[in-house]
Design a protein around this nucleic acid. Structure first.
Lengths: 252, 252
DNA sequence: TCATTTATTGTCACTTTGACAATAATAATG
DNA sequence: CATTATTATTGTCAAAGTGACAATAAATGA
């Protein structure tokens, strides 16, 4: 037996069943107290007219996470240098029939864009692709049929986000780098569909946040302290109010 | 524009960068108070002599989860009809250079096999493949260099398992369908590398377990009540003892 | 019968939580 | 300018949950 180098030099790839590898993006942002997702209304077959997640194929020289960032930049037209964003892998969807045209395996990603809670980031399609539009997530899930298995993906993304917000400061990815407790609380309200008590929320979050010393004047009411993230984990976790319970966690 | 049916009939797949799609399996079981993983000592290049995760290619007509179950049966030679097992998707690893031979994207899966805490399931390779052997996870992670990116995958699998055990009864997947509190506690001890207090453990778990009414005699000491899983979620979660802390959760 | 081992229940001080009251700090309004 | 409405922040209090560890119960082997 030769060296590993020798082996690789002589290696001839055999035929393995090959698939097209894509990424799909669940891009979330919060505005007006509502969780929104960037979705595209499909112009062509299949699933013409249905809403779909933005996405694209993974190139030969990049991994899935890189493709997700690239597609995020391309499909939303956002200047990611300027705009705070977070991308993480969600899960992979590989049903052989999930795309009726050909076998496409999709590595879905969760993308979170920071907002001030009022204005959604502009979705400027560079030029080519059909433009993604912001859609209220809970409404879409309740009323629309999404293309492909994108309904499953969107549901999984929402579950992941809602779940992670219990024990991490992931919610802070949806607000500016420095934020007030109300801004952060509104993210919880929007994602969990609940109304957190302001006093208790302050008590629980204060130990994992860093006080910047600054205050931000509000439209109405007292000015709020500006914080930044200090610790990433909330321990013990924040518990979701009963109204926003984990799916499938029925009482017996 | 025609119908969707018409469209699909006329559809000609274009050339997209295609990849080979594989699954890798992190198969865990607990015996002797130690978490073990089924690993294969590689006989050929690349990474000759290194330990690797069992795995294989996803076929054209199956999804990744199906491939994972199939590989679990093939590579371990287990009768999965008889043996309690759980398989879930972990994450997808897609670095273009993760396999030096060709581009292989792997959807890693976490597989949990039930044991009585003493005997590991036999790993009988049907005939073909190099046989997987049980290896102590913590030791392997500390001392061995694994093939490909399998070290990352194994670490991620351990993190996932340890994390899920905080807020779900996933640990019960590693013991028989009916089990005693000590058996379950030993799983926590093995995975978290901690020693849970028996009294407090009983108090915390009792509300999510169903008493079968039966007792199991122990080698020494009083007989233990036999339980089965009642609820899937532990709320509020069990907190990991400081000795078994979440990676990267350093105090500031 | 006794010593040993393990299961299970109990205690107790301390922490965390949920509900909600009280006290600031502003801006808009009369 | 005082008042009102609104939001931030702190405080209160009973109830629940936790960590440490003691006490009791139920076996086995000497």
């Amino acid at each position: 037996m030769g060296t590993e180098e020798q082996f690789l030099q002589d290696y001839q790839p055999r035929e393995y069943p090959s698939v097209a590898l894509a990424v799909d993006l669940v891009v979330f942002a919060v505005a007006g107290g509502v969780l929104q997702a960037a979705l595209i209304r499909r112009g062509g077959h299949p699933f013409q007219g249905a809403l779909a997640l933005p996405g694209g194929f993974v190139r030969a020289d990049e991994d899935a996470l890189h493709a997700a960032w690239r597609e995020l930049a391309e499909e939303t037209g956002l200047d990611l240098g300027a705009h705070r964003a977070h991308v993480e892998q969600l899960a992979t969807y590989s049903d052989p029939k999930r795309d009726p045209r050909m076998r496409v395996v999709s590595v879905a990603h969760l993308a979170l864009l920071a907002t001030d809670g009022k204005t959604l980031p502009d979705l400027n399609p560079g030029s080519d692709a059909a433009s993604a539009q912001w859609q209220p997530v809970h409404t879409v899930l309740a009323n629309e049929k999404l293309a492909f298995d994108h309904q499953d993906i969107l549901t999984d993304a929402l579950d992941r986000l809602a779940g992670k917000m219990e024990y991490t400061l992931t919610a802070a990815r949806l607000v500016p780098e420095e934020f007030t407790l109300s801004q952060l609380r509104h993210v919880y309200d929007a994602v969990w569909g609940a109304t957190m008590d302001p006093g208790n929320f302050t008590r629980k979050m204060t130990p994992v946040l860093a006080d910047t010393g600054r205050k931000e004047p509000r439209a109405k009411g007292a000015p709020a302290t500006v914080f930044s993230v200090d610790k990433d984990f909330i321990s013990p976790p924040l518990t979701r109010p009963a109204a926003a319970q984990r799916p499938g966690a029925a009482d017996s």
